[in-house]
Design a protein around this nucleic acid. Sequence first.
RNA 1: GGACCCGUAGCUUAAUGGAUAUAGCAUCUCACUACGGAUGAGAAGGUUGGGAGUUCGAAUCUCUCCGGGUCCGCCA
Length: 630
Amino acid sequence: MNELVFEIKKQISDCFKNSFGEELEAGALKLEKTDKDHKGDLTFVVFPYLRLSKKNPEQTAEILGKYLQEHCMEISKYNVIKGFLNLELSPEFWLKELTSLYEDPDPGQNSSGKGKSVMVEFSSPNTNKPLHLGHVRNITLGYSVSRILEFAGYRVIKANLINDRGIHICKSMLAWQKFGIGETPESAGMKGDHLVGKYYVEFDRHLQEEVKAIQVRVNQNDLSDLNDQVQRQNLIQLLEKLKAESDNEKRKETESEIKTLITRNTQLMSEANEMLRKWESGDAETLKIWEMMNSWVYKGFDETYRRMGVSFDKYYYESNTYLLGKRSVMEGLEMGVFQKDEDGSVWVDLTEEGLDRKILLRADGTSVYMTQDIGTAQMKYDDAHMDHSVYVVGNEQDYHFKVLKLILKKLNKPYADGVYHLSYGMVDLPHGKMKSREGTVVDADELMQSMYQSAKQITMDLGKTEGLAPSELELLYETIAQGALKYFLLKVDPVKRMLFNPEESIDFQGNTGPFIQYTYARIRSILRNTNDSFKVSEKAPLMEVEKELLALLSSFSQKSEQAAIEYNPALIANFIYEVARSFNRLYHEVSILGEQDENIKQNRLAMCSVTSKTIKNGMELLGINVPERM
RNA sequence: GGACCCGUAGCUUAAUGGAUAUAGCAUCUCACUACGGAUGAGAAGGUUGGGAGUUCGAAUCUCUCCGGGUCCGCCA
């Protein structure tokens, strides 16, 4: 198909030279798929070239059509409507196309990434709580993009940057120490990540209690909880500001400032901060608890990853990377692209690029998040020397990655241009954002389990799985559940935020994963009743439904290439859906095994074979398995 | 104050600047003695948030306004 499109463009260019005496570069031409309401397979729109042809649209299209029909044997007919030249490809061409697709053991591949390498970072969790629906979207996207890039010929390194240090872990650790009485995942009968998450919530509960108690005392003019004089003065100022303010909005703002100030001055927060300081100074006892609790979390995460069928080639830990980047910042300072403030802090000025000034090193010489990411970028490159580096991170960090890329460019890093932020929208619940403190988080493990239950229920109700062993059934329910969930998350363009309503379970009908899996199982059922090899006959006639399916199937490699270039799994999802729908139409309209004409039957079986391979490959690009029966 | 993203049918969603704007869910019809009904066919549903501009042609590009979300922390 690609060769033919190339050939037609060249012929159009030749025609412009011969018929109109004008040069027209073939590569710049656009050939589109013909609109379904019109006859034809490929369409060339002549409007933009009327200046060259110096004829009206119909005449121009007519001349081109005639020329192409004469010079290109694959074009059997053409028609002209206004400025649209619709080209019809010959049945012989389509059957030849079927032959080559049928002989391709792995249809749909493309070579846009051949000889290149890419690192895809995704998941990137904090280690203080279990994974939730937001992570599931991230992981599903990241894994799918990895597969898509692999399919395009890239060498792919899947990376996970784990945020295993910082105040949030210390909160879990502290709560465990104070309230945990030596509880372990074994003693609690709980996944490790859930147990650590439980203590994170526990910390917050105690913290809120303490804050409330202080607030009561503050309201009675007892400020003794704030030992620090400066803090106490700040609080007094805020309280006076609150008294003087009559505007409701501004009062709320001040109230929240007061709460933040009080929170910062609680006993619990100061203990958590103390723990962080101990961790940073390498205190043995603290490190021991930290390692123990993190290992619980990793075990829990691994289980979730395994259930999702994803894996990583490389793990990065912030405890190893958070001090990196200083050297690069120093380089930038020497190069004169960064500036040092009077207090010794280092900044980058991005006002010329329309952004702000951004701090890179604190006055005391310690790193910030950006410093760390500069360092990690270098570390990744030193490890893999990849051509591209994809970061699957939510769109709330759009600004951060814009800045990161600019900084890497200013530092003349060879890998700066390869940095790509695959930004995706948040998953919202009907009542707004997911908030762990308010208990409105959709937990990943629970979600997968409830999908499993639905899949099981529906499958049992339909009762088509006689003869499958219990272990096969279990695998099947899981395959369907994962298919429904992943497809639900991937069919939407990543940039769009999406709504998830836990009340309305994810569909198993229509444009869904199970629909596509079902189509696959159906085809496999047909193929099970035949021999493996078919002979494509190039003389048998083709029906319209068959040609439609063929046209779709032959565009798989273009689609997979586009998906790789745009880092967009939604294109693949929608493509396989089209394929499945198209096949189902064919299936309904004609009989395959019952076809009397042996040539036509063989061709249809070959189409079944190609369709099943296309669906299988396409679903694999989404990280979804397909069942032989369901 | 500045910057970014998203607005398409009741809901979810598709569409390299091209023809009468895709589909799915839900609603209403219809089709199982055909290879698997988690299916297929049909009906209904739209001022592509509003307005202006560029263009032979705009859901798509530009401007502006409206709505929703996010960011601009010496948090990560």
